[in-house]
């Protein structure tokens, strides 16, 4: 599209390589897409949740890919989409999931003056760069019409495999090393033999504790309930029902009073229909028809972070000891 117009204009002015301005269509697309790219970049920096940041970044990268295309770098444009938005961003998201999706940064700055320094440095550098560019006063440009005459990919390839072949090979080696390095870094050596299912079962019998499999989570929850503990018969949540990983991350949601209320209402309803009123008293909840089951909502949203902070406090105490 833009590239086509650019290519045609460059073919028209094949003899006069230097031109002063791009097409109006490219200018329009630059302003629109550029704005979006800046917004995406700002979103990357400013949004609290890492996932949102990643999405914003992906958007910016796609737009950059378009700009590459507009600048005659067809190969790079495609590679940008494949490698960055495809591979790299996926890798980011993988790690995000591993680390915890819901882990959101608090906006409170802990380092004194860090934010102001950062802003000052950023504004200073930006001003410098832009003023430097302004001084450069490039009024005309050559365009890639001649360079891309045989197509962008063959032109790149002919350079890459001749002039830059050593660098290319070295970079290939670098990639291999990086892959091996990443594997090594994340690899955890098993120091004992992993237990077989049979051994685990025998161990459980010997310990005489939880002979059956662990109870399932989220018995009464309405959400995707892996992170919500099941309730014991007396209504207290049981940690056994949720994954230890979620517990240690503090991403387990509490069963709030609303949920308990809801349980009580359900019980009451069941009791009413069976004529057994005594059972509902167990929860100490009189029947209240105003509080409808459907209105009850999650209350444990902040609990994840609170739990994490509590855990951090405990760790600090341990460190000071």
């Amino acid at each position: 599209m833009f590239s086509a117009s650019e290519a045609s204009s460059s073919s028209m002015d094949a003899l006069n390589l230097a031109v002063n301005s791009t097409s109006a269509a490219e200018a329009a697309s630059f302003w629109v897409l550029g704005t979006i790219a800046v917004i995406g970049a700002l979103g990357t920096v400013l949004l609290r949740k890492a996932v949102h940041s990643a999405l914003c970044l992906a958007g910016t990268m796609v737009i950059l890919a378009l700009f590459y295309l507009a600048n005659g770098a067809y190969f790079l444009g495609i590679v940008q989409i494949v490698v960055y938005t495809g591979a790299v961003m996926m890798l980011f998201l993988f790690v995000l999931m591993l680390v915890g999706v819901s882990a959101a940064d608090s906006l409170k700055e802990t380092l004194k003056g860090q934010r102001w320094l950062a802003l000052a440095c950023g504004l200073g550098l930006g001003a410098l760069l832009i003023s430097g560019l302004g001084q450069a006063s490039i009024t005309s440009f050559t365009g890639l019409g001649a360079a891309n005459a045989d197509g962008n990919v063959p032109a790149l390839a002919s350079q890459l495999f001749t002039k830059y072949v050593v660098a290319f090979e070295v970079v290939g080696a670098l990639l291999t090393v990086a892959a091996v390095g990443a594997t090594l870094l994340t690899h955890r050596e098993r120091i004992e033999k992993s237990k077989s299912q049979r051994e685990q079962a025998e161990e459980r019998v010997r310990a005489n504790k939880h002979l059956p499999p662990l109870p399932a989570p989220g018995v009464y929850a309405r959400h995707n309930a892996v992170d919500r503990p099941g309730l014991l018969p007396d209504g207290t949540p049981s940690d056994l029902t949720v994954s230890a990983t979620l517990l240690s991350r503090g991403q387990v949601r509490e069963v709030g009073p609303e949920a308990l209320h809801r349980v009580a209402v359900l019980e009451q309803r069941t009791a009413d229909s069976h004529g057994q009123t005594e059972h509902g008293r167990m929860y100490g909840e009189p029947h209240d028809p105003d509080r409808d089951v459907d209105d009850a909502d999650d209350e444990g949203r902040g609990s994840g972070r609170e739990a994490r902070e509590a855990r951090q406090d405990a760790r600090e105490e341990e460190a000071t000891k």
């Binding site: 800046v38 910016t60 700055e109 860090q114 934010r115 802003l119 950023g122 550098l125 760069l129």
Partner: peptide
Amino acid sequence: LLFTIGAVGVLI
């Protein structure tokens, strides 16, 4: 502009 935004992001 993008570079500056990225740099500030790294810092904050």
